[in-house]
Design a protein around this nucleic acid. Sequence first.
DNA 1: TTGCTCCTCACGTCACGTGAGGTGGC
DNA 2: TTGCTCCTCACGTCACGTGAGGTGGC
Lengths: 274, 274
Amino acid sequence: VSSTLSIGEFSKLTHLSVKALRHYHEIGLLVPADVDTGSRYRRYDPAQARDAQLIRRLRALDMPIEMVRTVVNATDGEQRSATIAAHLRAMEDELERTRDVVASLRALIEQPLLDIEVERRSLPDVTALVISANVRHDHLERWGGAAFEELGAAVVASRADVAGPGGGVFPTALFEEDRGRVTAYVPVSAVQDTIPRDFARVALADIAGGEVLVATHAGPYTDLDRTYAALGAAANEMGIAADGPIRELYIVGPDVTDDPLRYRTEVCWPVVES
Amino acid sequence: VSSTLSIGEFSKLTHLSVKALRHYHEIGLLVPADVDTGSRYRRYDPAQARDAQLIRRLRALDMPIEMVRTVVNATDGEQRSATIAAHLRAMEDELERTRDVVASLRALIEQPLLDIEVERRSLPDVTALVISANVRHDHLERWGGAAFEELGAAVVASRADVAGPGGGVFPTALFEEDRGRVTAYVPVSAVQDTIPRDFARVALADIAGGEVLVATHAGPYTDLDRTYAALGAAANEMGIAADGPIRELYIVGPDVTDDPLRYRTEVCWPVVES
DNA sequence: TTGCTCCTCACGTCACGTGAGGTGGC
DNA sequence: TTGCTCCTCACGTCACGTGAGGTGGC
């Protein structure tokens, strides 16, 4: 006599907790085959175990519930695979970031002091190809990588003359609120052609210069906070407070070398006498 | 003129958000060097950036706050390293589990159907060396690995005769509430010596047998839910409900082969006619 | 009938993020 | 003075877990 299963029995079949099953019912992700109108007892069909198995695996990979719903409801195998693949890619990105942080933690412990040289400089106004977006601090590196690749392609496509190292503009909100409107740019002295439409995110814009304190950060971007701290402390000691967005200039970056230890980044602290 | 920094300035130096800094103050993890009694404005010393850098890295690795506190407050470098090393080990375990789940997801999608053979059997009562503990479902595999290693060593140390494959006893709470008191055991027919005191977790106990439905699970433990579903559905179709804890017998396991695809596990469903 | 299973709230978790509404400092 | 920075609540987030208190089913 084949029949439905109580929530406890279904839990044993699927290894999903009773609490989780009730939750999935409540949000409509995995609805019991039948619910008794009087007692409200849930009844599951053994065939629902397949969906449960899928859900359990996706959740074990920390896929957000709404994304799980997309996968489970996918009528089309292509769409299902694409959603899963997207999540796996995000996981790999996360893993890479984790590796970077582990290395950065080791570096901090082994060599807690960083000595930097601070220099005062006047940044010129520049015209540049730019990409701007609202970015979270922990997504900065990945976002920047994609942005500069696109900018590089746009430079070629518009036959522009590059007039200096690429840079980033970071409003204080990026640090204070962990997200903000960030701009990546490549200075150009002349743009022969208009920017092709394929580069929808790329624009031509002016980047204002100004007085800054500069320190050169040596090494991976994950360690940038250490140069920020040293530079900020130095500025503070000089009685200078940062005014406006912080600038980074990518003197040696991934476009030049594959070894992050060789990266060189100039961190520019906008200057105001106090 | 060196002086303290406002929370906004300190945020820029450390790349910790203002909200996070306030939170760390509230819980006493990173207390400002000074707090104005009137305005309650926080003031940080630039030297506090070091602690902030450490905290930021540990949190980026998802280390729980209380563990971060242990690291930050550690007076002794040994203790600090040990705490960090423990977290890194936990992260690697997690990574391994993730890899297993990804493989398991692939397997589920590629081959959604599992056909199993169900057999009825009478399990005998056995005397066994056992380890019991309250375990969460997602820690089962790691816990079992350690438990069986310890049981193996205890078998040797007590000069016991092994009388059958190792097994596990799983109460329904393990599935329904995602945690429960689990027992790992190795049946023995004779114990020559007493169990040495080094094996504090190991005891000699009787494991009750009984009537069961058995299906053999082929492959990694991460896929066990699929055999549970097939076996439970088969039992249901026979009008049989599980009564009492489920049993697993590890016929071919990591002690025999390094290839999880060759694992063979008998899943035993306790039987009651309904 | 007993005790086990199931039910529904209401609230907790964890480490902050999101506003609202208001005040202090330069 | 203006506007920017900072403050403190109170509540939200996410995917369930933790009880409390009660009822249904065999």
